[in-house]
């Protein structure tokens, strides 16, 4: 298993996946930072740590599903392109191991992206001189819920990317996810829980409230129910995908 995982990292060399994640999330961060700077200019009350966490969380609803789809697709597509799946299976690699290795590889790369986001948020907050020290607890929560949601999203993406050779399907699903994630706030509460992509916002440690003429950021506890739901989806997608792909004839 360790060998299979090591091989995944070896195989993605020259695929420039790191660079792609960095650039993609870099654009997102830049956009978020600019919009916060503008909002602070209008309303100095917004110069708080919570604002940056909330903004990034809601924008992740758009960006993370898409970058997840791209990363997973890149990692899976190389096996389709060179017909290497049969080579690996005929060389005594268990399909279940291969599936797990790809899943871990993709998620470790995306975790790197999430961690980078957290670091950038701290840097930005310090630069802007937000009051107080960086809210470690909120940031940790941000990291955990983003990873949790990403785990479910990648489980779904990997299933599609490996089961259907044409990567257009997987990438379209990623874009659909981004759309749902971006507009999650507009859906009624219960209905949106069936869409995994809305969890970037739903599980966000910070939310935004309008009270009359003023608006403010407040921290919210993470709902245990939704967390369980996300975990259940991860397990479901992963197991279904792994079994389906392992049974496919080569």
């Amino acid at each position: 298993m360790i060998k299979t995982l090591g091989l995944e990292y070896y195989k993605i060399r020259r695929k420039k996946i790191w660079l792609m994640i960095t650039l993609f999330l870099g654009v997102e961060m830049l956009w978020a930072f600019m919009s916060i700077t503008r909002s602070i200019a209008k309303n100095p009350d917004h110069a708080v740590w919570e604002s940056i966490v909330f903004n990034i969380s809601s924008m992740n609803g758009l960006f993370m599903p898409i970058i997840s789809a791209i990363v997973v697709s890149r990692i899976c597509d190389m096996e389709h392109k060179g017909a290497t799946w049969k080579l690996l299976v005929a060389t005594n690699v268990r399909r279940g191991n291969l599936y797990a290795a790809k899943y871990i590889c993709a998620n470790s790369l995306l975790l790197f992206g999430i961690l980078t986001q957290a670091v950038m948020m701290i840097v930005f907050g310090l630069m802007k001189g937000f009051p107080g020290t960086p809210p470690i607890e909120i940031l940790l929560q941000f990291i955990v819920v983003n990873l949790l949601t990403t785990l479910a999203v990648t489980a779904l993406q990997q299933w599609i990317s490996l089961a259907i050779k044409n990567q257009t399907f997987a990438l379209c699903l990623g874009m659909l996810g981004g759309f749902v994630g971006m507009t999650a706030g507009l859906f009624p509460g219960e209905a949106r829980h069936i869409f995994i992509w809305s969890y970037y916002l739903d599980l966000s440690p910070v939310t935004f409230h309008y009270t009359g003429s003023t608006s403010l950021y407040i921290t919210q506890p993470v709902g245990a129910g939704i967390v369980l739901f996300a975990l259940a989806m991860t397990v479901l997608f992963y197991i279904a995908g792994s079994i389906h792909v392992s049974r496919q004839e080569i």
Partner: peptide, 27 residues
């Protein structure tokens, strides 16, 4: 058992040597 079935399998973005290294790790 070594095998080559139908069209050859390879990672296009890797060099020939790197493709061999992939096999080397497996074998």
């Amino acid at each position: 058992t070594g095998s080559l079935i139908e069209s050859p399998s390879y990672y296009g973005h890797l060099t020939g040597l790197e493709n061999m290294r992939v096999m080397q790790r497996l074998r």
